[in-house]
């Protein structure tokens, strides 16, 4: 067992978990933050993307113990004062989702892109979302949503 100290969505948490606990399991099963989804569980689909110390990573492929001391932001941490994040608003406005399973990962990944690049081109958005798979084939509207968010962020 390992004691893991993290700051998750601005709150300090300290939990004792099995050494092989990955961050996605820590978030979902220990903290009950089920907004982070697990699709493939082998770092291909991107449904589990969260931010660790400001960078997007796949939470299914990082050990919680390894991230001790880090700041984690999940999809639940985006709402501020009851207001959705501009990226969430844009996904809603542009119908950037169908079933919604991939959406938390898409939103977290897309925010990381806009943190690096203010006005990405369609190609840059598509290249960036390489690691996020949408099985409803909703990519067209996802790209439109990211472009819309870029005008607001």
């Amino acid at each position: 067992m390992k004691k893991v100290n993290l700051e998750v969505n601005g709150k300090k948490v300290s939990k004792e978990v099995a050494d092989h606990t990955v961050l996605s399991v820590f978030l979902r099963e220990v903290l009950n933050l089920t907004g982070t989804h697990v699709g493939c569980d082998t770092s291909q689909c991107g449904a589990c993307v969260v931010h660790v110390d400001g960078k997007s990573i796949k939470s299914c492929t990082a050990l919680a113990a390894d991230l001790d001391g880090s700041k984690v932001t999940t999809i639940e941490g985006l709402v501020k004062n009851g207001k959705m994040h501009p990226m969430q608003e844009a996904f809603k406005k542009e119908h950037g989702l169908q079933c919604g399973f991939c959406t938390p990962g898409m939103v977290m990944s897309a925010i990381d892109l806009l943190n690096h690049k203010k006005n990405p081109s369609d190609k840059e958005i598509r290249d960036w979302l390489e690691g996020n798979i949408c099985r409803c084939t909703g990519y067209q509207n996802i790209v439109a949503a990211v472009k819309e968010a870029a005008t607001k962020m």
Binding site: S43, G46, I57, K58, D112, L113, E130, G131, N132
Partner: peptide, 9 residues
């Protein structure tokens, strides 16, 4: 290499 999240780790 891979995708942005892979490159971050």
């Amino acid at each position: 290499i891979g995708d942005p999240q892979v490159r971050n780790r």
